[in-house]
Amino acid sequence: NQASVVANQLIPINVALTLVMMRSEVVTPVGIPAEDIPRLVSMQVNRAVPLGTTLMPDMVKGYA
């Protein structure tokens, strides 16, 4: 099963993503693939993302 990107903490809106904010985990439904974590660094989410939430492509500005 493919690992997805999961919030490692509350990720506020309009804050640049850092490695420490994200972890990889096998979850259902599948979200952004874990291998895209380096690409996500410095991008921003378009809504607050609670701890443990799977990041979906539509949550990250400029990802999709």
Rank of each mutant, 00 (worst) to 15 (best):
P12M: 07
V27Q: 04
S42M: 11
M59F: 13
M43W: 06
S42H: 12
S24W: 06
V30A: 13
P50G: 07
V20C: 06
I32S: 00
G62K: 09
N1A: 14
S4W: 02
E35P: 09
R39G: 09
M21Q: 04
R23H: 05
N1Q: 12
T54L: 04
N46D: 08
N46V: 12
L19V: 14
P38W: 10
A16T: 08
L19Q: 12
S42Q: 11
Q2I: 14
A64H: 14
V26P: 07
G62Y: 08
L19S: 09
T28M: 13
L40E: 00
V41K: 06
P38Y: 13
V20L: 13
L51C: 06
V27N: 03
V45G: 00
I13R: 10
M21N: 07
L10D: 13
S42R: 08
A64R: 04
P57M: 06
S4F: 02
D58R: 10
R23S: 09
M59H: 07
S42W: 07
Q9N: 07
T53A: 15
V6I: 14
E35S: 15
A34R: 05
R47P: 03
N14Y: 08
I13T: 13
D58A: 10
A3N: 07
P38G: 09
N14R: 07
Y63E: 03
R47Q: 14
I11N: 00
N46T: 11
A34Y: 07
G62M: 07
N46H: 08
M22N: 00
E25L: 08
V5F: 02
P29E: 07
G31M: 02
P57V: 06
Q9C: 07
V26G: 04
Y63S: 04
G31E: 01
A16G: 13
I32K: 00
I11F: 02
A64L: 15
A7E: 02
V49M: 04
L40Y: 03
P33L: 08
P57F: 07
I13M: 13
Q9F: 08
M56C: 05
V41F: 05
P12A: 07
P12T: 06
V60N: 01
R23A: 09
M22T: 00
L55Q: 01
S24R: 14
Y63P: 04
V49Y: 02
S24N: 08
D36I: 09
I11D: 00
N1W: 09
Q2F: 11
I11P: 00
N1E: 12
L10G: 14
P29Q: 05
M22S: 00
N14I: 03
L19E: 13
V41H: 04
G52T: 02
G52P: 01
N8L: 06
M56I: 09
T18W: 03
T54I: 09
M21G: 00
Q2L: 13
A48M: 13
V30P: 15
A64S: 13
Q44K: 13
A7N: 01
Q2R: 14
G31F: 03
E35H: 12
G31Y: 02
T28H: 12
G31K: 01
V30D: 08
I11M: 05
E25H: 08
T53V: 13
G62F: 10
E35W: 13
Y63I: 04
I37P: 01
A3V: 08
M43V: 04
T53K: 12
G62H: 12
S4N: 01
A7W: 03
P33C: 05
P12E: 14
L17M: 10
M56E: 06
T54P: 06
M56Y: 12
L19I: 10
A34F: 06
S4V: 02
A3K: 13
R47K: 15
T18Q: 14
V6H: 02
A64V: 15
V27M: 08
M59K: 00
V41C: 05
R23E: 04
E25P: 01
K61L: 14
V26L: 08
I13F: 11
R23N: 08
M21V: 03
L55F: 12
V5T: 06
Q2P: 13
L55T: 02
V27H: 03
S42N: 12
G31V: 01
V6F: 02
L51P: 11
V60M: 05
V26F: 15
N1C: 07
M43K: 12
A7I: 03
A34P: 06
I11K: 01
V6D: 01
G62V: 04
Q44Y: 11
T54Q: 03
E25Q: 13
A64I: 13
A48R: 10
E25S: 10
E25F: 05
L10Y: 11
R23V: 07
M22K: 00
V49L: 08
